[in-house]
Design a protein around this nucleic acid. Sequence first.
DNA 1: CCAAGAACATGAGCTAATGTCATGATAAAT
DNA 2: ATTTATCATGACATTAGCTCATGTTCTTGG
Lengths: 304, 304
Amino acid sequence: MIELRHLRTLIALRDAGSLVEAAERVHLTQSALSHQIKDLEERLGTALFVRKTRPVEFTRAGQRLLALAEQVLPLVRMGERDVARLIGHEPGRLHMAIECHSCFQWLMPTIDHFRDHWPEVEIDIPGGHHFDPLPALAREQLDLVITADPQPLSGVYYEPLFRYQGLLAVARQHRLAERAFVAPEDLADETLITYPVEHARLDVFTQFLDPAGVRPREIRTAELTVMMMQLVASGRGVCALPNWALTEYLERDYVKAVGIGEAGMWSTLYAAIREESREQPWMEDFLRTARETSFAVLEGIKPA
Amino acid sequence: MIELRHLRTLIALRDAGSLVEAAERVHLTQSALSHQIKDLEERLGTALFVRKTRPVEFTRAGQRLLALAEQVLPLVRMGERDVARLIGHEPGRLHMAIECHSCFQWLMPTIDHFRDHWPEVEIDIPGGHHFDPLPALAREQLDLVITADPQPLSGVYYEPLFRYQGLLAVARQHRLAERAFVAPEDLADETLITYPVEHARLDVFTQFLDPAGVRPREIRTAELTVMMMQLVASGRGVCALPNWALTEYLERDYVKAVGIGEAGMWSTLYAAIREESREQPWMEDFLRTARETSFAVLEGIKPA
DNA sequence: CCAAGAACATGAGCTAATGTCATGATAAAT
DNA sequence: ATTTATCATGACATTAGCTCATGTTCTTGG
């Protein structure tokens, strides 16, 4: 019997273009997908896609099932959502804080989408609190915090949203601009621009420079991403940012980006929530929506 | 994650009205369904139906999922059907013979429905053959035979369709008419009307009278069911027929029906096909359609 | 009102489906 | 030709999902 699992796999496969990446998206191994699809194909008595091409090419049978998936999965999700809504009549509250300074880009579409489906949930991003957001979460002053560095805190659960790559933004004519990636030593006599937060919470240091024992010549801070970009573009320094925070500047050819370290510098973005709110139907829905929206809106990120 | 399995279960549950019978329909145990649904309910965080009532009553969440199932399952079946059709381009042939004389009632809707979906399969019920249909099946003169007594024959596979109960039709004012069921001895001085086939192929004898060593006073035969009903109604005998062959006469209050033996006399109706044709996509579809249609059209039958 | 019968729940245990891991084959890229 | 990426495959592991046996609860009929 065909199951929804199979349909979800096919969609992931189409979106990803390869088994390996599709496997990541559905949080299984490549092997599992290979077996799963092979099994399905055997039962149906036909191949569903051609593996030799990149991206994979679907056979007619495969296309038919894809179409089926497109019809069916949204219906199922709507159904689940309705059921969830039938349960939690108590109007929910979703007050959130955003640690990472440039998340609005993908968070806003998420919120818009969410608001349509859960009109009764009160959403807010209270501005200008100067307290530490994670304790405030535990204190129930906040309900969700977007953060890149989870710290163990009783009652707080960190739901991974996605992984992203940190890139080094440099001026277009910078000496490093044509490199595929930089080594820690390359930053030894550069000015590094960061957000004004503790050293320990910046991945460039913890993951990249500190392990190599390298310190940049100078460190200066800036509050806003645009500001940083101006400094970088005018050659007054370099700065490490998530790939998706940079795309708009890269598209406009305002700065260049190079990889950080040979393997790249990857971090995970988390949604921190209280344990109890974890099973709230609208919370589950929000997290799912957030993940979906981010994959739709952002490029070059990977499932956590 | 919700799966199609769950939706299929819910539909079965609604149609059946109780877990026990729903379990039969999906060919699982009552326990399995209980676990399955409990698990689903836990994950959704709400009950789906009230178990105390008969038939079971669905909660709002349950109703929503039922609606979902009604939307989704037909789509899935159409998808599967299309895929199956994409494979088997070779035009199929489906020539069938019907052993049991009063099957047209449910077979016709099946054929109609099937013809819409598989226009390229040539369907026929060749009439008036006087040869034995099962050997003809092996000889590839026929492709499907509806029969109630499977006989081991190499290369022939018997797919069970459903189980039905044999009932004894008696005149309205007959002395047995008010009984819940008859014992073998009750027939000792009755005239029994049967189809004109070998003794060994009539369940009344093999399952009921022979084991008890009872012979009816007289046996007479009739070709057609209507004929039998006329004889029965006018008090010239009694006859054993499948429950579904009788319903139309019962509804019109033309005859009465009583059970045969305390436990009832149950037989299974089979579709006999050749081993090889068993995996033909349209054959699978025909059998499924046949089973579905029969459950929709007939009452008082059970899954095999 | 009690005994017997249905129908559902539940826990233990088993099996088979469905994963992972390690590795090999194949094709594309350098 | 070598490296790198992707997919296939077999052996093993895990676990979801089933059956079996039994308990609980509600209904029915004597």
